[in-house]
């Protein structure tokens, strides 16, 4: 369930980060709602695939790094702090920096492999190192079981996907820019929350040593 809610609360961010990839694509294609839906589905499928790959990698990381260490809390806490700071910086001070996926999506469009573009864009946006995603990853790595990892990212995927559903209807969304800013700021607050969790984990971890 945690993955789902993390996805829910991060979903806004994801939309904020990823709509710049999707919307220009849909508008560029200029098709109807139904077509847009197909595109969206492809995109989400790609994202799911990306996430599940990541779940696997995360599990490996979790095993290799955290497996042998006693003070897991400490490391996770520090990772939380680093990533959350990153997220806040993105949110509050560098409003115009798009997510990594955007440039990749752009390249993919240049290459022009029609059906694959949304899938690729999704896959890449799924594994793009956007800060909320890194945070989610840290969380999953901390648990250290493959099934948990997979399940977590699946839920994360569902949680974030909720926010993509309205997109096909939007087409030319008027307040897109405002929504993006709101989304990023929400991400910043989520960052704040992780910062707190991180600090608490570090305190607890330090006490445990």
């Amino acid at each position: 369930m945690k993955g789902f809610f993390l996805g829910l609360s991060n979903g806004v961010t994801c939309v904020a980060y990823c709509t710049p990839v999707l919307i220009p694509y849909m508008l560029g294609e200029g098709k109807g709602v139904a077509q847009n839906f197909v595109t969206l589905m492809q995109f989400l499928l790609g994202r799911l695939a990306g996430y599940l790959c990541f779940a696997f990698i995360t599990w490996l990381i979790g095993l290799s790094i955290f497996g042998g260490l006693g003070s897991k809390g400490l490391i996770i806490g520090i990772l939380y702090i680093i990533f959350s700071c990153l997220m806040m910086v993105y949110a509050f001070f560098r409003i115009d920096v798009p997510c990594a996926a955007r440039s990749i999506g752009y390249v993919a469009r240049k290459i022009r492999v029609p059906l694959l573009i949304p899938v690729a864009a999704g896959l890449l946006s799924g594994i793009a190192l956007c800060p909320p995603f890194l945070l989610a990853m840290t969380d999953a790595a901390g648990k250290g079981s493959l099934s948990y990892s997979l399940f977590f990212f699946f839920m994360f995927f569902i949680g974030t996907s909720v926010f993509f559903i309205p997109i096909p209807f939007v087409g030319a969304l008027r307040r897109l820019q405002a929504l993006q800013i709101v989304g990023k700021m929400a991400a910043g607050i989520v960052g704040l929350y992780y910062l707190y969790t991180g600090i608490m984990a570090v305190i607890a971890g330090a006490e445990g040593i």
């Binding site: 809610f5 829910l8 609360s9 806004v12 409003i95 405002a178 800013i181 709101v182 989304g183 990023k184 700021m185 929400a186 910043g188 607050i189 989520v190 929350y193």
Partner: peptide
Amino acid sequence: KWIYLPFAVLLFVALTAAA
């Protein structure tokens, strides 16, 4: 741009409160 912050806070607290 800070006038958008309350909307972000709204989104955040509404979702976390629900979760």
